Amino acid sequence: MAELSNKTGGFKRQTITEAVAEALREEILSGQQKEGAQLRQDAIASRFNVSRIPVREALRQLEAEGLVTFYAHKGAVVSALSRAEIRELFDIRRLLEGDLLARAIPKMPQELLQDAENILNRYDTALENGEVALWGELNAEFHHILYVAADRPKTLAIVQNLHNNIDRYLRIQLHSVGARNKARDEHWDLLNQCKAGRIESATQLLDNHIKAGGDNLIDFLDAQEAK
C-alpha cells in the first residue's frame, strides 16, 4: 500500500486531497504514470487507503493544472500534449517570464540572489548524481525565485502550471548529457546577468533559453519517436 506524505504548510496540516494530488502529480511528472494512462478512482483510493471523495477532488485539481483530462465513460486519464501544444506552452512562457524578470530585477534583494545561487548549486548536484526527481523541481524553483520580486502572484501561478505541464518532458530530455550541461550553463549565465542588474541582456538570455529549450525538446521527442 502506498503512503502519503504528511507535510505541514503554514498553520495547517496538508489535507488528504492535497496529499493525494501531490502523490499523483509526482507520479505523472516522473513518468511513472504514462500519457493516456487511466486513473481509476477506486484503485487510487484503495492504494492510498482513503475514500474516493478526496481522490476525485485531487483529480479535479490535477485537471485544472492540465495534467489530467476527464472523458465521458472513461474517467480521468493522464493528459498528453501534442507538439503544437508544447510549442504553445513555451511561447506563453517566453511572454510571461520575460515580463516577470524585467519587473523583478530592479527589486531583487541580495538575499534572494543568494537563494537562487543555492538552488543552482543543488541543481548541479542533482544533475551530477542523476537525481531525476529533483531536476524539474529545482528548475522550477530557480525560475520562480528570479520572478518573485516582481510581485505578480497571479502571473506566477500561471507560470507554475506551465512548468508542471512540461516538467515530465524536460526530465526525459535532461537524460542527455549535452542538454544537462547546456541548461546548467545558461542558468548560471542568467543569474550573473541578474546580479549585475542588466535587465535587457537578462531578459534576452531568458527568451533565448526558453525558446531553445522548446526547440530542443521537440527535436528530442521527434528523434525518440523515430527510433
Results as ranks from 00 to 15, higher is better:
Ala2Gly: 08
Ala2Asn: 11
Leu4Tyr: 08
Ser5Cys: 06
Asn6Thr: 12
Gly10Leu: 08
Arg13Trp: 10
Gln14Pro: 01
Glu18Gln: 04
Val20Phe: 08
Arg25Asp: 12
Glu27Cys: 05
Ser30Phe: 02
Ser30Thr: 14
Gln33Pro: 01
Glu35Phe: 10
Glu35Ile: 05
Gly36Thr: 04
Leu39Asn: 11
Arg40Gly: 07
Arg40Asp: 13
Ala45Ser: 07
Arg47Glu: 11
Phe48Tyr: 11
Asn49Lys: 08
Asn49His: 12
Val50His: 08
Arg52Asn: 07
Arg56Leu: 13
Gln61Ser: 01
Leu67Asp: 05
Phe70Met: 02
Phe70Trp: 15
Tyr71Gln: 09
Ala72Thr: 12
Val77Cys: 14
Val78Arg: 07
Ala80Tyr: 02
Glu85Ser: 03
Arg93Asn: 10
Leu95Asn: 03
Gly98Met: 03
Ala102Val: 10
Arg103Lys: 12
Ala104Lys: 04
Pro106Lys: 00
Lys107Arg: 12
Glu111Tyr: 03
Asp115Glu: 11
Asn118Phe: 09
Tyr123Asn: 03
Glu128Val: 13
Asn129Ser: 05
Gly130Thr: 13
Glu131Gly: 02
Glu131Met: 02
Glu131Pro: 03
Ala133Lys: 13
Glu137Ala: 14
Phe142Met: 06
Phe142Tyr: 09
Phe142Thr: 01
His143Lys: 04
Val148Ala: 11
Val148Trp: 03
Ala150Gly: 11
Ala150Ile: 07
Ala150Asn: 02
Leu156Trp: 07
Leu156Gln: 14
Leu156Ser: 13
Val159Asn: 11
His163Ala: 04
Tyr169Ala: 14
Arg171Ser: 12
Arg171Tyr: 01
Gln173Tyr: 10
Gln173Leu: 15
Gln173Asp: 11
Gly178Ser: 02
Arg180Gln: 15
Asn181Met: 10
Ala183Trp: 00
Arg184Tyr: 07
Asp185Glu: 13
Glu186Lys: 09
Asp189Gln: 08
Asp189Ile: 00
Leu191Asp: 00
Leu191Trp: 00
Gln193Tyr: 06
Gly197Lys: 02
Gly197Asp: 02
Ile199His: 06
Ser201Val: 15
Ala202Val: 02
Gln204Trp: 10
Gln204Asn: 10
Gln204Phe: 07
Leu206Glu: 04
Asn208Tyr: 15
Ile210Glu: 02
Ile218Glu: 04
Asp219Met: 12
Leu221Glu: 02
Asp222Tyr: 15
Ala223Arg: 15
Glu225Met: 15
